[in-house]
Design a protein around this nucleic acid. Sequence first.
RNA 1: GGCCCUAUCGUCUAGGGGUUAGGACAGGUGAUUCUCAGUCAUCAGACCGGGGUUCGAUUCCCCGUAGGGCUACCA
Length: 489
Amino acid sequence: MIRVRFAPSPTGFVHVGNARTALFNFFHVRGKKGVCVLRIEDTDVERSKKEYEENLLTDLKWLGIEWDEGPDVGGDFGPYRQSERGEFYKQAVQRLIEKDNAYYCFCSREELEKEKQDLIGLDNPAGYTHRCRNLDMEKSRLRVSQGEEAAVRFKVPKNRQVSFRDMVRGDVSFETNLLNDPVIMRSSGIPAYNFSVVIDDISMKIDLVIRGEDHLSNTARQVLIYEALEQTPPEFAHLSMVMGADNAKLSKRHGSTSLAQFREQGYLPAALLNYLSLLGWSPGDDKQVLTKEELIKSFNLNKVSKSAAIFDYQKLKWINREHIRLLEDSTLGEIFSPFLEEAGFAFERNPEILTWIGKTAKVMSNYHYLLTEIAEAFKSLTKVDFSPDIIKGLRDSGTSRKVISRLFAGISRLDSPVAFSRIVEITQKIRQKTGIKGKELYHPIRLALTGKESGIELSDFIPMIEEGSILKISPPVINMKSRLEIHDH
RNA sequence: GGCCCUAUCGUCUAGGGGUUAGGACAGGUGAUUCUCAGUCAUCAGACCGGGGUUCGAUUCCCCGUAGGGCUACCA
């Protein structure tokens, strides 16, 4: 059974790029009935925060990613936080030191920094002379036992190549002489990334590492560590990066980047999931709108593209609309309710109301892409502003006055809600009796009803307000009659 | 600077030694006769450059160029 892992750092909000990596892991493993591990890489004590970890879990769950082992669900290979796995790293470090694959480094950060500056431009690609590499181990041990601060570096073997097969990129190889000896254990006793991943992936029996391309170069060092530990490295699949419109790594200045932001703006998780999966992967056919189940079914690592992809907010919006339309009215009503409440509406969440809300939201999705925008648009149902110009314009026009007063008279006799078929009858009658038709007929009705020159199709809008007006929603939906009253003098 | 990765319409991509290089988003036009939107129809739009290999390269190879990544006691 194949085991993959997603290993985020709890150092902030979940970035869509990382979410995409998680998604590809998830899709790959679900299609194969494998196991997905969530591991928290919190070795950066400065930046890691517990609350970020909590957000991380909720955000990933919101998106629809599921894992079989992790800090919240447990598993046989825990603990699943690196901060709780200190013993694993300490033991491995000792093994490497004993095997002469690692050594203590007593250089201070200042010394290292200075050395780096001095070596710029010189023929030393590693940027570090590895002064401590040949220190006598007995003496080093003594210094450490006397309390001297020391980091542990991995001894990169010289004059050879490291290579590995990447499922996305093919064979990749590096010259070891170009690699410096990486710190694997900081002087604080906390392991460094390139080391902790290897140790954890070994002990968690990970056999496929799907991660971002930013880790590609570091993989060389990691493979060397696997070798030193006499372990077979896992397979690798390095995903290309997600970029902003200016072709730089996607960041805040390009717009929203965190799952939380997309959620708050009113993107459906299914839509974001769908869009993210299409960034750097394609199902092979021309389908663009896919559900999670379809994605799991058709996902294939072989179809992942090698080149970086620019995040297209416009297409995401379009996909969001498509997913809104995929939902049942009542389901959409359910999902959409929090956004309506956030916009100041109060109502009971009963099936009748939720269905009306969903139906209405779906119509409004023709005009807006996001649930927040749609919630905002709902305000036009409970509030109308007629500018003095509109009112005057309707009164000054003979035809407009005729249309409105007849329409008002027509519906005044009827009980709420007025069926749309009745409205059609009334307008037909007005046309027959007055000869007013087309734009002359419908435009005044629109203006009198909404106060606006353009907007939702009347055949959608009228049923919407009539049906909504009898529902217990606060503020209440204003029906036709109340809207027309204002103009009927 | 060094090393690694990448390169098809504006964007996401399909394709692959001989194709009218396909689709989607965005854009243009037309239809739907209340408008905007939506919908439908339709148009425009791409193989980074130079060398090879080959009867033939967008496709394979090399070089260049451009972009990205790594080169941390960040991940």
